[in-house]
């Protein structure tokens, strides 16, 4: 029971953290000629990490390699399709990136909220008050 206390929210939190740094990188390179904005395909990566839909390999010996469950290395970066690229080849569109950034911020806090709720629930169950 306790190996999956937080459910999907654990992977979601990690992934949102990663996406935040990808989007921050887009914002940082808003004035770099030729830079192509990138993003994580959130639904696709999260479905890879969902252990219910994909059977994990069983590790029976210390020599076995565990399958990647954190989504950290498998997060595929995709190039963003710009509405209109700049003449210098830069595809960062400030409003799009800022909207994605704040959306990701809210989703991160939502995941954190679910985890905090679960912790409070368990503490209530343990302490009984």
């Amino acid at each position: 029971m306790f190996d999956n206390i937080f459910g999907i929210h654990e992977s979601a939190l990690l992934l949102h953290g990663q996406r935040l740094s990808v989007l921050a990188n887009n914002l940082a390179n808003a004035d770099t000629p030729g830079f192509k904005a990138r993003d994580i395909d959130f639904a696709a990566v999260l479905s890879q990490t969902d252990t219910d839909s994909a059977l994990p390999l069983t590790v029976t010996s210390p020599g076995h390699l565990a399958t990647n469950a954190g989504g950290a290395e498998s997060a595929d970066l995709k190039y963003r399709n710009p509405y209109q690229a700049s003449l210098d080849g830069n595809t960062v569109e400030m409003p799009v990136e800022q909207a994605a950034f704040s959306e990701n911020n809210v989703r991160y806090q939502a995941s954190l909220g679910f985890i905090n709720g679960r912790i409070a629930e368990l503490q209530f169950a343990i302490a009984g008050t």
Binding site: L20, A24, N105, L112
Partner: peptide
């Protein structure tokens, strides 16, 4: 703004639970 957001999220993560 990006730095401030990351800082807020980290502080909230540290305060988890």
């Amino acid at each position: 703004e990006a730095i401030n957001t990351a800082r807020d999220l980290l502080l909230k993560t540290i305060a988890m639970g």
